[in-house]
Design a protein around this nucleic acid. Sequence first.
DNA 1: ATCACTTACGGGTGACGTAAAAATC
DNA 2: GATTTTTACGTCACCCGTAAGTGAT
Lengths: 286, 286
Amino acid sequence: MIELYLLEQLDAFARLGTLSGAAEELHISQPALTRSMKKIEADMGIVLFHRDKRKLTLNPAGKVVAEYARRILADERELLAAAYEADRRERTLTLGSCGILAINHLIPVLTQSFPGKSILTEMAPDGALVARLKNRSCQLIVLHEKPEDKSIFCQRYLREQLYISVPEDHPLASKAELCAADLAGCSILTFDLGFWVELCREKLPKTSFLIQTDADTMDELVDASNLLVFNSDQMLKDGYVPEKRKNLPLREDFASVSYYVACLDPEKARYTSFFNAIRSESIGSR
Amino acid sequence: MIELYLLEQLDAFARLGTLSGAAEELHISQPALTRSMKKIEADMGIVLFHRDKRKLTLNPAGKVVAEYARRILADERELLAAAYEADRRERTLTLGSCGILAINHLIPVLTQSFPGKSILTEMAPDGALVARLKNRSCQLIVLHEKPEDKSIFCQRYLREQLYISVPEDHPLASKAELCAADLAGCSILTFDLGFWVELCREKLPKTSFLIQTDADTMDELVDASNLLVFNSDQMLKDGYVPEKRKNLPLREDFASVSYYVACLDPEKARYTSFFNAIRSESIGSR
DNA sequence: ATCACTTACGGGTGACGTAAAAATC
DNA sequence: GATTTTTACGTCACCCGTAAGTGAT
């Protein structure tokens, strides 16, 4: 058995050409290298060097060993990288969601249900989420349409109804509720809420959406402008109630969605406590 | 840097399933293994095992490491095998020859010209020899036809003239020399001399050859029979003179050949002393 | 004199075995 | 009680650095 530190030292010598150079790179003394090179030969029982009193060079067998050593050292580095990646996956639970609401709601639940695990969240469209679930990039996903796939275990979660926060002095403020036509030609301020934006752009083509990604900027714009603001029953319940605005529901089919929390069916046992935890919340929200 | 002995121990545990089993296979104590497994984790800085008080099992990251370890250990074994093979090639000089005569003559010369090297000889037809020279299975070859290939350096060596040793009471014994027709219908005893047998079978289709591979058997058959015996000027010079027989030359073009010693042209400098040694012998033989 | 490698010597880390304990079946 | 793993302790190997030596440029 040739230990890796010996192969590393041989590799350094093979690349640098001199023991002194290799010793410098490895931060060890020359004599240590002399001994190591002798030790490899002794361990293998064959001669690997041509000794010229002045210069040490690899003979053909030595070159063969150096070549393999290089490969083995690369494999060892790969081992470390793969192990760290596996470890990271073990310690983190990745939640993918089609919208930001579920993320905000679920992070505390996940933190409590899986103590010791880091929670990583990301937003993506439903289709991409299913793909990420299957290639194990995500362990849990939140969709706004029920997946048909039998290999995916799925549990109904919250409903969310779209609201528009209308400035009190806005013409629409007199209404009790809104429909798509009311919003034609309007601009609506909205945070980057995931699927909602795409859905509304499709369903309300005559309305423009002003997407904000920074929460503070968003808040300032809401305060400083008399624009319509995107909102929902859940957001209102969470306390997101813009000042000096009336919050009106948007009465359209698309403006009310159900969320579904899903995982790979074979893995559902791992997440039982989590699914139980959100079931009560889900029922409570109806 | 994870040392190989640790990976070996992890691999044994991964295969055997228990530390005690692995310890037995590795001929070390259990506590040593416990410590080694802890050391791998400490060296890598991640957890690789699920500890159940009673049973130790690999977690996903541990399985990844075990898988890589297996590959790396296989590579290390391959390294050893390749190095030993390279070392063997370095220490042995392989001579291929079309006939046994050149082998017998050249072994002492090679032994003296390349002190410290083992000499390995083998017999094969000219075509195969050239192939073996090119793929480095042989360093030197002896042919009975001059190769045209420019990448092959070639030097003329001995000539050999075929003789037939005829029993003194045999009808042919009265002749001074023989031709192909004289041998029609005869059986000739011969040792396995390489290309000569194939050549004679082709040129003397009406003569049968009784091939012997064991030298003692051959000698006894020569003494006990009144068969013709295959011979040559070189063999006679070497002292192979069957008793109670007359040695007659076979006067046919094919029955006299020149040998050529060859090596790869880029390597000829390595064999200068050898080529010089056989040049004098070659000239002396004419 | 300088450079490259080798030899000689002393020190500290660490890999091992033995012995014993803890925990589970 | 038997099996498996862990902890504790002492020993020995060995890997390293420093210092000195050899040979070549």
